[in-house]
Design a binder for these strands. Structure first.
Ligand SMILES: [Zn+2]
Ligand SMILES: [Zn+2]
Ligand SMILES: [Zn+2]
Ligand SMILES: [Zn+2]
Lengths: 175, 175
DNA sequence: TCTTGACTGTTACATTATAACATATGATAT
DNA sequence: ATATCATATGTTATAATGTAACAGTCAAGA
């Protein structure tokens, strides 16, 4: 059964930290985010072409970090090109336009859960199930900015990734 | 001329954020850190063998992120093996033992400026000169831990990297 | 219609990283 | 002393990740 919290999760970005780690109406959250991506593209005059749209769907279907070659494999299986640039270009488009994030530590990509926010998220990566989730990064960004400022460093971007065990895996007794 | 601040920088870890970005007595700071690495190895029963020691020196000589193959090239030029595992093994040893850090965003490595602290640092990466520096990460780590906790996520490690312009490059009018 | 620019696809290659096995070396233990 | 063992080094070969450069497609605008 799908409870109110699940519905809320797909519409209340500020409260969905760890969504990927919880039970939720997945088809709903995916559909909602694809719709949101279409809106964004329309608003901004971007072209969410078939490959790009499908790449985003693939990321959304997983709530998990996927390597470019994993995405490529699926795209190729659906009739798109099967050469690396096909995947990298689609993924780069999604990242540049805030619809996906690159995870440096994993050399992988994930769908963004708040497209349009123009945020640099903090990403949590579960080492047991490899699922990933975004968490609010404002406090972290502030701390980074402060440390950097005292070194005279002008921050233009950040990579903040936490590695560990998600709540589901801990509940399941994972060590 | 080498001023007091430069001396201090190599012996007062808590105050050296951004050291790499400033003028300082470089041979002094390198020598001191090699000596510190020797101490650490002795304390912990680690073997800082010739390749490992040389790999660390190479990183120290640069105050800059070096790719594994850059390190390999130098090692090979000095009579060590010239196959990738030679560099990767030395670098992995240094990272595992807190004498160097891996920079996820650059697929590169840097010498640690506070070996023995057992810290996960925040790293600042200058896009103009590619120099890197560590900054205190406690406030950042705290913010990360707090965000993660509200998602039920147990943090075991973090990657915190800031990209931007260092003070030297800004002073030099870099945009 | 004809350009033009953006998108897709391909070839070919560059860069980063690891598995697996062989050899050397130094520290026990007999 | 010498056999044994663990650790470290070196090699071959290959995997995984990422890009440069160019050719064909297609739709929007001159
Ligand atoms: Zn996001
Ligand atoms: Zn998990
Ligand atoms: Zn350090
Ligand atoms: Zn710089």
């Amino acid at each position: 059964m799908i409870g109110p919290a699940d519905i809320e999760a797909s519409t209340q970005p500020a409260t969905d930290a760890g969504l990927a780690f919880r039970r939720h109406d997945h088809s709903n959250c995916c559909g909602g985010l694809i719709a949101r991506a279409d809106e964004l593209a329309a608003e901004r005059g971007l072209k969410l072409t078939p490959v790009r749209r499908r790449a985003l769907e693939i990321l959304l279907e997983e709530h998990r970090a996927l390597g470019a070659y994993e995405v490529l494999e699926r795209l190729a299986g659906e009739g798109f090109g099967n050469k690396p640039p096909v995947a990298y270009r689609a993924l780069d488009f999604l990242v540049e336009n805030g619809m996906a994030h690159r995870i440096a530590r994993l050399n992988a990509f994930m769908a963004c859960m708040h497209p349009g926010d123009d945020h640099t998220p903090m990403v949590m990566i579960c080492r047991a199930c490899r699922s990933v989730a975004e968490a609010p990064a404002e406090p972290v960004a502030a701390a980074v900015a402060e440390s950097a400022a005292s070194a005279g460093f002008a921050v233009e971007g950040t990579v903040v990734e936490a590695l560990g065990l998600c709540s589901a895996c801990r509940a399941r007794g994972e060590v």
